[in-house]
Simulated assay, not measured.
Amino acid sequence: MKWSEISIHTTQEAVEPISNILHEAGASGVVIEDPEDLVKERTSVYGEIYQLDPNDYPEEGVIVKAYLPVTSFLGETVEEIKVGINNLITYDIDLGHNRVSISEVNEEEWATAWKKYYKPVKISEKITITPTWEDYEPVSSDEVIIELDPGMAFGTGTHPTTVMCLQAIEKYITQGDHVIDVGTGSGVLSIAAAQLGAANVEAFDLDEVAVTSARLNVKLNKVASTVTVGQNNLLEGIEGPVDVIVGNLLAEIILLFVPDAARVLKKDGYFITSGIIQGKKNDVKQSLLQAGFEIVETLEMEDWVAIIAKNSADTKEG
């Protein structure tokens, strides 16, 4: 099979939403080339990535590459992707150069070339994420190792929004918790919750590709008895009460289901939100407060924010 590589030269801020647009367009692989990964100084070992080659990265900006099968509909698909990316301007997202280019690669080249971008990454005190093809030996007896076959989506390491979510999950989830992961994507947050002691995890995503990918990763990590993956629009039709809700999504999407989160969460349950750009932080905080949440902690990494809130409202058994 022949594949078309679509390359978008953009900004760090736009990586997450552009990646989502590419998923929805049926991309069969996403590579994120961010030169900051090569030079950034880290306050801890968390997020450290090894064996990256500077020659693989742009001098400035970020390049997001996706792979689409060459079909008669390719032209229309590319145009839809361009329109979707340009529409991000309405969300005040800086697109940078916003240059889109197309090239053709064969399946053999594609299947091996992108693996050089993906290495084991230590995310938190306990959690390390590693691709399935890397041999990784745990460094401590209580280390939580999450194996991912990125397949449909991955980057040079784990995005700051996901890192903060995983750190919050490690801190706030307790043994036996019932957890809901809204917009699960690869399923990594649900897998972490299960491995950290949650007794029941429901993972939802509207995108069929994400649902398929998450199910594969859940099975790969042997947590299928704990994690159930399904297609759903945010928390529509979902009843509680549950102990923790996690949502690593754009701020605009989080704002859509804050009242539902308050309805579904137990009193004193935690709502872990991430994917929030600095400019939207106060909007999300205000929405949480209006819905009866108490802001417990705010995490910041690069230009991204995660907010952990506790539900102060009484939730009826449902």
Rank of each mutant, 00 (worst) to 15 (best):
P150H: 10
K126V: 01
G84H: 07
M164R: 02
I102S: 07
F293P: 03
I308Y: 03
S312P: 00
A111W: 11
A14W: 11
T212C: 03
D207M: 07
W3L: 15
E107D: 12
D177K: 06
K281N: 09
E60I: 01
Y91Q: 15
P54R: 11
E107A: 06
D56G: 02
I173P: 03
K281C: 08
G84L: 02
S225P: 00
E104F: 10
I276Y: 02
K266E: 06
A66Q: 08
S225A: 11
I127P: 02
A198E: 05
V218T: 09
K40Q: 13
D34L: 07
R215W: 02
E143P: 01
H97G: 00
F257D: 07
A25R: 07
G75A: 11
E125R: 12
G197Y: 11
P150F: 02
E41P: 00
V64D: 01
Y270Q: 12
V284H: 07
I18D: 14
L88F: 09
F257I: 06
T132S: 14
R99P: 00
A214C: 12
T158K: 05
L22D: 02
N55G: 10
I145A: 02
V227C: 12
E107S: 08
V296D: 07
N87C: 07
T315G: 14
Q278F: 04
Y117H: 11
D149M: 04
E137I: 14
N106I: 05
T226C: 08
E104A: 05
E24M: 09
E202L: 14
K119Y: 07
K219A: 14
L22V: 04
S312R: 14
F204V: 14
Y118Q: 14
N200A: 07
E302T: 09
G318D: 08
I169N: 03
D205F: 05
P54N: 08
N232T: 06
F73G: 10
A306P: 04
A27W: 01
P58F: 01
L299W: 00
E79G: 00
A192E: 08
I81H: 10
E109D: 13
V182W: 03
V78Y: 07
S312Q: 15
A309G: 12
T273H: 05
I93T: 01
S141A: 10
Q12T: 10
R42P: 01
T90E: 15
S28M: 11
E5T: 07
N106K: 04
P120C: 05
V15T: 15
G247V: 04
E170F: 01
E24S: 13
G26T: 06
N200H: 15
Q175G: 01
L52E: 09
I191P: 01
V105C: 02
N98C: 12
V188A: 04
L234N: 05
F154N: 00
G96R: 08
Q290Y: 01
V121N: 12
V62K: 05
K266D: 04
I85R: 12
L220I: 03
T174P: 00
R99G: 08
A168N: 10
S225F: 01
P17S: 11
S141E: 14
P160S: 04
